[in-house]
């Protein structure tokens, strides 16, 4: 799959995951990696960008094993952005499906 396209989709998935509940980096990466094959190191850069664009806030939380974990939580701006992405995606996916099935529009 095209890298740019893939990156956009993964960005959307990350937003959707964190919209459900606050998560830390490893958790997010594993949630995605269990369904699709990705270079796990490439999720953090996306997380960093979304955070600096104010779609996520981060906070540190102590963990029983190892160092404190950085949790990501979605901001209202992030939710709004996710809604736009979702709307676009469903619209796009609907058209693609129609085209792939060969039905008339």
């Amino acid at each position: 799959m095209n890298t740019q396209f893939r990156k956009g989709v993964i960005e959307m998935c990350i937003l959707a995951l964190i919209a459900r509940r606050d998560m830390y980096g490893y958790e997010i990466v594993q949630s995605i990696a269990q369904y699709t094959e990705i270079a796990e190191g490439t999720v953090y850069p996306i997380l960093r960008r979304l955070t600096s664009e104010d779609y996520f806030k981060t906070y540190l939380k102590e963990s029983s094993s190892g160092p404190a974990r950085k949790y990501y939580s979605i901001t209202p701006a992030g939710r709004e952005f996710l809604e736009t992405l979702k709307k676009d995606w469903f619209e796009f996916a609907g058209i693609v499906e129609i085209l792939l099935r060969g039905e008339a529009l």
Binding site: G25, Y26, E27, A39, T42, Y44, P45, R69
Partner: peptide, 30 residues
């Protein structure tokens, strides 16, 4: 710090450093 945290979390799940490195991808690409 983020990547160190990642290694720690993987280790807590019983993964070896070698496995985690392979899953992360080549450092220069990252």
């Amino acid at each position: 710090r983020d990547y160190t945290e990642y290694f720690e979390a993987g280790k807590a799940e019983g993964k070896s450093e070698e496995e985690i490195v392979r899953a992360l991808g080549i450092p220069s690409v990252v």
